[in-house]
Structures are given as C-alpha cells and as structure tokens.
Simulated assay, not measured.
Amino acid sequence: MTHYSNLKYEVKDSIGYILIDREPQMNALNQETLDELQDIFKHFNADSHVRGIILTGAGQKAFVAGADIKEFTDLSVVQARWLSERGHIIFTDLIEGAPKPVVAAINGYALGGGLEMALACHMRIASENAKMGLPEVSLGLIPGYGGTQRLPALIGKGHAMQMILTGDMVDAHKAYEMGLVNEVVPQEKLISRAEEILQKIFTRSRVAVASAIDAINAAGDKKRDGSKVEMDAFGHLFGTDDFKEGVSAFLEKRTPKFPL
C-alpha cells in the first residue's frame, strides 16, 4: 500500500475513500498534495474493486480551503501557467473523467482550488456548515483549475460572474438553491449520505453507468460531439450482457442481477 504524506485512503464496500489530511492548513492544496491526488485517482480509476469514490477533507472546518498560497510567491509566469495546466489535467482527466462516480463530500470551507476540485466531481453533497467561493480576484488572480469553465455550466453565467467577480462566499443552502450542490445534510450524516447514493448506483449496470458519465461529460467538451457520443454508446450497450439482463428482468418483473 502506498503511503501518502497529505492523503489518507481506503477501499470498503466497493467505495474508494480519499481524505485530504492537512487539517492545520485547512487541507489546502500544495504541489505535493496534487501529486498524491493524481496518483490515488489513477489507482482508484484502474481498480476494478472500486466502483465509486468519495472525496472529502479532514476535520469539520474545511473540505479544501484553496491552494497553498505560500507556494505562489516565487512562481514565474511560465511556472504559473504550468501549475494551472497541471490542475486542469488532474481535475479534468482523472476526476471529472473517472469512469466511476465521484462524490465530493463538502464538510466545510471549499474555496478556490478546493471548490474547483469539488466542481470536477460528478456530484456534490454539502454539510450544513459548508461555505463555498472562488476568491482569487482578491489576490489579483482568477480561478485557474477550471472554475471559470465549470461554475457557469453548473449554475449559469450570471451567478458565476457574481461569485467570481466579487469573490464572495455562499453558504450551503444558497449553494443548493443555485444548483452548486446536489444536497445539504447535517455534518454527521455527510459521508453516510454519499455512501447511500453510491450504493444505489452500484445496483445499476456498471457499463451503463460508465457510459452515462462519459456522455454527460461530452456535453461540455468542445472537442467532442456529445450527441454522437450518446448515440454510439446507446447502440453499443444493446450488444452487452447487461442490456440483455436488464430487459429480461424488466419483462419478468424482477430485480436485475448485473455483474459486480
């Protein structure tokens, strides 16, 4: 088992758990943490025993309260550009592009790069004390890990403009009203609710779930034709054993038994 300095992880009941464990630093994303996130997501994405992933932060105060600003002070323009590109690669290819559902369990502050990481997840569940924002303009910057792209797609251009240009935070209930999070629950129920959602997904066809994630992601990808991805996947699934089992179960009025 790989030992990480900034992350804890485990696999239980087909769920891969990732805990960003830098509580004294409000779980801020430094370069080493990004390295470790890249490695664990590659591992979980390739592990057939892992059917879904829950990503959260240590403690009760912060999911991830942004990037580690101390590391910004000595970066050149070229280095800063690469830092942004690297964040895009990790968040887009490995988190958003994961072939299995990824749920962000937002247990407190999700700011800057932390909110951008949550935006890359397929679903977001927030505890009642959570607060979210993209405050980069207060540093003379803009969101650099996909926030300017994903936030408008999720909550609309007007709301995204206001959040990004003011740098203001929203609380969990406002985030729910805006469509930024799927659900708001008491903190003590946060992980169990995320588990409940994943366990329900696990009763569905594994191959269909992966195809659905890919097709939905294609809708926001300018390099792909989302409708074509959907049509191709729809046709392909007709040739799978899962489709045969699903239709047989429906006609026979029984619960389908998909391969685990």
Rank of each mutant, 00 (worst) to 15 (best):
R51Q: 12
R206N: 07
S192Q: 11
R204M: 13
D47P: 02
P259A: 01
S248W: 07
F234D: 02
G144N: 07
A67K: 04
I216K: 10
V229R: 10
F72R: 08
H3V: 11
G220V: 07
G158L: 11
I155P: 02
K100R: 09
E36P: 12
H122I: 01
V64F: 07
E230Q: 07
T2F: 03
G147V: 02
A175C: 09
L94A: 08
K228P: 04
E188G: 05
R254D: 10
K228Y: 13
E32Q: 15
S211P: 00
I213G: 11
S14Q: 08
I155H: 06
S211K: 13
D171H: 14
I216L: 14
K12E: 15
F234Y: 07
L29E: 12
I106N: 06
P152L: 12
S48P: 10
T73C: 13
D232K: 04
G220E: 04
A130G: 12
I15N: 11
V185P: 00
A215C: 15
A212K: 00
R224Y: 03
F243I: 00
G246N: 01
L154C: 05
Q79Y: 10
A233G: 03
H173T: 05
E36G: 13
S211G: 06
I95Q: 09
D171Q: 15
Q199S: 09
T240E: 00
L29D: 13
A153N: 10
K8S: 12
M26Y: 10
H88Y: 10
F243Q: 01
V64C: 15
T166G: 14
I125H: 02
A172P: 04
H173V: 01
V247W: 05
L251M: 14
M117E: 05
